[in-house]
């Protein structure tokens, strides 16, 4: 516990921007977890008497074309963004990390085949690859979350994470303790999981936080294109499309605040990822 506190103090001292971004991320997480308590309105409840209301006392960020409270939809939208962002980033980085580790450890033909496949996947722009997966998979809803959407966002992350983790693992593979483990007769999987994986945790964590930001952006893009979350569910990207696009002149708050939320979230996760990298990388410390 004392060590954790000391590490946190060190992080606060050395990464002031990181702590600001961490606060922003925690606010977002708080909103997502306690949306029912924080939001003043049901995000899906239509109130035509309040449609297109400008920001005011009752609706601090105004209402949309259906009279739905924008602040409440943003708060619930944080849940969608985080659920999809965290899960897809976790799946993508973990799968990519596993491939990268195995590729680096086994080397030879395994590495050659894995890297060419990764090259192939990397040749697709992220949004195109995600669009293909969404189009092929359709929708598969579990507990209100579209699993295929998460996979669609995770898939483009896999080759990128694999490439980074492989690079880190290649240097770990040459470490004496790996040689020692080999000499002791440990199995390949034990060496990978017990001796190599813990030593690539730092780049993994950095990738994970950075790709949450990218996943949030990708989810917003797919929802904007009508391929992500569907109305009336609250989602930030979705709030920028549809009727918002039609009413941006008479009700600019309909696009302003969701756009701001996306930008802030992406900025916060990116900053936090950068701070984490700087803090964990001993070379940058010196």
């Amino acid at each position: 516990m004392r060590r954790a506190v000391s590490l946190f103090v060190d992080f606060v001292r050395s990464q002031p921007l990181g702590i600001v971004s961490l606060v922003a991320v925690l606010v977002m997480v708080g909103c997502a977890i306690f949306a029912e308590q924080v939001a003043a309105f049901d995000p899906e409840a239509i109130d035509f008497a309040a449609m297109l209301s400008a920001p005011g006392a009752e609706h601090p960020l105004g209402t949309d074309a259906f009279g739905r409270d924008i602040l409440s939809r943003l708060i619930y939208g944080a849940r969608t963004a985080l659920a999809i962002g965290v899960l897809s980033s976790f799946i993508g980085c973990t799968l990519g990390g596993a491939i990268g580790l195995a590729s680096a450890f086994f080397g030879g033909k395994v590495d050659l085949v894995a890297q060419r496949l990764i090259d192939m996947l990397l040749s697709f722009p992220i949004i195109v690859l995600a669009l293909v997966v969404v189009a092929l998979g359709g929708k598969f809803i579990i507990a209100g979350i579209d699993v295929n959407l998460i996979l669609a966002i995770a898939v483009p992350t896999v080759p990128r994470a694999a490439r980074v983790i492989r690079a880190a693992a290649l240097s770990v593979r040459e470490m004496p303790y790996v040689d020692a483990a080999r000499a002791a007769g440990y199995s390949d999987w034990r060496i990978i999981l017990r001796h190599m994986a813990p030593n690539v945790t730092a780049p993994y964590l950095i990738l994970f936080t950075a790709y949450i930001a990218q996943a949030i952006l990708l989810e917003a893009s797919l929802s904007f294109l009508g391929l992500g979350v569907a109305e009336p569910k609250p989602a930030w990207g979705l709030m920028l499309s549809g009727t918002s696009a039609n009413f941006y002149q008479e009700a600019p708050w309909m696009i302003l605040f969701p756009g701001l939320a996306i930008s802030l979230a992406v900025f916060a996760f990116n900053l936090f990822g950068d701070a984490l990298r700087d803090w964990l990388d001993p070379k940058l410390k010196t």
Partner: peptide
């Protein structure tokens, strides 16, 4: 369909059904 005004009427109908306790997934 995923185009206006189909989405708008879909959102409205789902809201109406919510008021009698029916939960609807909007597949666009």
């Amino acid at each position: 369909r995923n185009i206006p005004p189909y989405v708008a009427i879909g959102v409205y109908v789902i809201d109406q059904w919510r008021q009698i306790g029916v939960k609807a997934e909007h597949q666009q």
